[in-house]
């Protein structure tokens, strides 16, 4: 378990995190685009994409919430060793990792009217991501795109609170997609 904690990080952090961030930014700027993240691998059950997201974006300044399915000692030790991010309850989290049913059960910070950026980013560990299912429209999307979302109502409620709200990453193995609060989600036609 000791070696598992130390392993799986970036071997060349400046370059690998830059490449990872470019993919992450592309996903956030173009909702529905499915991209791949590599360079790091945290302990099970953390997916590769979620591991890379955590290494690229989290540090001692970003409180993180681990939902029960990922809140195992190996993951805690790995996140602590590689990022130093403190573990907190959902209402204080800047990042949260877990499955969709786990994360929907909680209220995360959605920002304030004067600082809507002080809101949580959720990393949703999902099944295989595909460009089908819910229809997405909004900033970053030329006409419409599609993404296999776990549901639509929650994302419609989230978008209705704009400029407040949560931003989502969906991860499966090395796959990554994102859904910012601006995206209008409708059920498939």
């Amino acid at each position: 378990m000791q070696t598992q904690t130390l392993e799986g990080g970036f071997s060349n952090a400046p370059v690998q995190s830059a490449r990872a961030f470019r993919e992450i930014m592309t996903a956030m700027a173009r909702p529905g685009v499915i991209t791949a993240l590599d360079g790091a691998r945290g302990p099970a059950p953390l997916s590769q994409a979620a591991s890379v997201l955590i290494l690229t974006l989290c540090d001692p300044e970003t409180p993180i919430y681990l939902a029960p399915s990922v809140d195992v000692p190996a993951v805690r030790a790995w996140v602590t060793f590689h990022t130093g991010a403190p573990f907190v309850a959902p209402d204080r989290a800047q990042f949260a990792v877990g499955t969709w049913p786990e994360l929907t059960a909680h209220d995360f910070p959605i920002g304030t009217p004067e600082f809507p950026d002080r809101s949580a980013t959720l990393i949703v560990e999902s099944g295989p991501l595909a460009a089908s299912g819910a229809v997405l429209k909004g900033p970053g999307i030329k006409t419409a795109s599609a993404l296999s979302l776990p549901e639509t109502a929650a994302f419609q409620r989230n978008a209705a609170r704009f400029p407040l709200g949560l931003d989502y990453f969906f991860t499966h193995k090395d796959q990554l997609a994102a859904l910012p609060r601006t995206t209008q989600v409708t059920t498939c036609m």
């Binding site: 952090a13 400046p14 995190s17 830059a18 961030f21 992450i24 930014m25 956030m28 700027a29 690229t56 974006l57 989290c58 540090d59 300044e61 970003t62 600082f115 809507p116 950026d117 809101s119 980013t121 900033p139 970053g140 704009f162 400029p163 931003d167 910012p180 609060r181 601006t182």
Partner: peptide
């Protein structure tokens, strides 16, 4: 790297809230 992470987080929130100035 820590500075870049901080800037990258600001860029992501900026993209999520277009036109809003992220400190």
């Amino acid at each position: 790297e820590q500075t870049k992470r901080m800037i990258r987080r600001a860029i992501l929130k900026g993209l999520a809230i277009p036109g809003y100035q992220v400190p």
